[in-house]
Structure formats: C-alpha cells, structure tokens
Design a protein around this nucleic acid. Structure first.
Lengths: 159, 159
DNA sequence: GCTTGTATACTCGGATACAAAATGTCCGAGTTCTACGGG
DNA sequence: CCCGTAGAACTCGGACATTTTGTATCCGAGTATACAAGC
C-alpha cells in the first residue's frame, strides 16, 4: 500500500498558503519553485484540491490559488481525500460468496463479512486520526521561525 | 490509496486453513477452487505468506500449505505486511528541504517534518488496530455454523 | 508374499508477460494588464 | 493630458503520453506414491 506523493505536496502547499495569506492568490509556478516540483503536475493536484473546495482558484494574469477556508477548518483527512480520490484501503470483493465456499450459505451472508469489518475498523482509526488534525495544527507545530522566514523569502523571489 | 486484493485472499485462506487443521497440508488448487480465484496467482501470494513465516509449505504430491503458528498468534498486521511488503502509506520525500523552501533553514530540519509526524501518527493508529486482532478473533466472529460447514464441504470436494 | 528400485504424477518455487494506475506533459479558454489611438 | 479600446501575455482547466506498480501466467526443481521386477 502506498499513498501518492501528491499528498505531501498538497499538505505543504496548504501550510505555505496559510502563511502567505497576505500574498493571495499565489500562482502554481511560485509554489513549484518553492519546493522544486514539476509545475504542471503540481497544478493538476492543486486543481483536485480546488474541486474539493479546499483551495480557491483565480484565473487570469494575476491569478493563482488561495485557501478557501481558514486553516482551522481544513483537516488532513480533507486534503488526503481530495488528492487521492475516494480513499478505501481495503475493498471487500466478497470472495466468501464465490466458488465452493459460497454454496448453500446464503443465510450467513446476511451478516457483513467479518474480515471486511475488521479491516474497516483499522481504516476508521486511521481516518479518525487524520480528521483530528488541521492545517492550523501543522502551523503551530512548525518551528517558530518558519512562518516569518517563509514570508520574507517569498517576497525576495521577486515579481 | 488502495490495498491489493491479495490481502483479502490471504486472510480468508488463513481462516479457512485454521478450520481445516485436520486436512493439512491443503494444496493451492483446493483453496483456489474454494474461493474461485486464479490458482497460479493465489499461489504466488501464499508463497509470500510462507516467506513471512505465517504459513508452512510442503512440496511433493501430497503437499500444500498449513498454518505455521496457532491462529491466536497471527495478527492481521502480520498478514497485511506479508502480502503487501513493507507497508508505509505516507512516504515523506522531504520536499521542505528542496527549492527555495530549503534555503538557509538547516537548523529547522534537525527536527522531523511536522507533516510526516502527523501522517505517521495516523498510520500507527491503523497498524495498532490491525495488530490487535488475530485470525482466532476472525474465527470467533464468524457465524457458528461456518467452521463445521467448511469442514463438511471440503470433505465432499473429493480427493 | 515381501522387499526394493524406478518411473510417474503432482506439488511448490521463482522467472517471465500483460494490464491498470499513477506520474508527467501538452494545448485550449479566460482574464487582466498594457499600449496605442482618439478626444 | 485623459479616456477608451484593442491586443498581448499570463493564468487556470481539462485532455493526452509515459513510466511504474500490480496482476496474471509459464516453466523448472523436488518429493511421495504406485507399480513392477527380483528375492
């Protein structure tokens, strides 16, 4: 199992955008140069965040992206779900109903598959942890100097 | 994010093997027919479980697979890790150190990335839930008639 | 009839093709700024 | 000198290739069985 790298990109971009609130909107090219990422592909992922209502986009020559909600109201689960699409680590195929195993046991299948239930329990614990943390929490956990340094360096980038 | 279907196969096979303890070893062909799965590919996954020390394999004409440990000592985490390989949903690429973002902030990077920490916290919650449940728990949660029906039908398969 | 040797059929084990998804790239639609012409 | 208008540059948005991962399959190594021959 592996989570796409776009998740890391999206989270870092959200935190950076929160720190650069004064500079909104921020174009993709700036964010790509900021983290040395492929600009076009990063844009694709930011679009996904926009479709999910986490970012807001402005077209045109002075356009770019900005946060659509205050950082306190954007959870890590929101970002992961937006970038990865419908997240469902374990997908029960109901193989218990197939082959010899499924013959003459219809009554047992009215109850949910115990394996699917167990896997889903773990998935819910994961989602709960992600939903309990917000972009604001990440900002608070970062070194104190990060926010100020980010704003200063961004201004130095020129434009 | 998506977990390979081999996880479901592996878990169902472990439970079934536990119920069929009297019939060990059980060849791949039987298990494949049991759940209507591609035999060769299922074998590949059972080999992974064998390499991890969860199953034991016996070659030869009367060979097959059996549980290498009692069901109480096989956790869901063991099976998932064996089938999926090194499971690490979020893989921090340290993009914070790249591009403009990483200039002149070496001191901040001595501390772990807050985003990686947050994601890992969720991953650990997931692993904890998986490690807390065993194959024996799945057997206990299954309908009471399942074990007996499995043994009876397996005997009827012939051989 | 019993033992022994050999051939055979069936099993696991790893190396090899195929398909799907994630990654990366490209072109088109829209908006703002700028420059030029007119008043 | 000021205003209006038209052009151009820059941005987002979605559609199109390429690489990586997961899925599926094939052939080779090894072992217990069954059969036949010899004692």
């Amino acid at each position: 199992m592996r989570l796409g790298e776009g998740v890391e990109w999206g989270l870092h971009c959200c935190v950076t955008l929160a720190w650069l609130e004064q500079e909104w909107p921020v174009p993709t090219g700036r964010l790509a140069a900021w983290f040395d990422l492929p600009p076009e592909y990063l844009k694709k992922r930011l679009q996904a965040l926009t479709r999910a209502g986490i970012l807001a986009s402005v077209p045109g020559v002075r356009g770019g992206f900005s946060l659509a909600r205050p950082p306190e109201r954007i959870t890590l689960m929101d970002v992961v779900a937006a970038v990865e699409g419908p997240v469902e680590p374990f997908r029960c195929q109901e193989i218990r109903q197939r082959g010899v195993s499924g013959l003459g046991a219809a009554s047992e299948f009215r109850r949910a598959c115990g394996i699917a239930t167990a896997m889903r329990r773990a998935e819910l614990a994961w989602r709960r942890e992600l939903a309990a943390q917000t972009i604001a929490d990440l900002m608070a956990a970062a070194p104190a100097a990060s926010a100020e340094r980010t704003r200063r360096r961004y201004a130095q980038m020129g434009g």
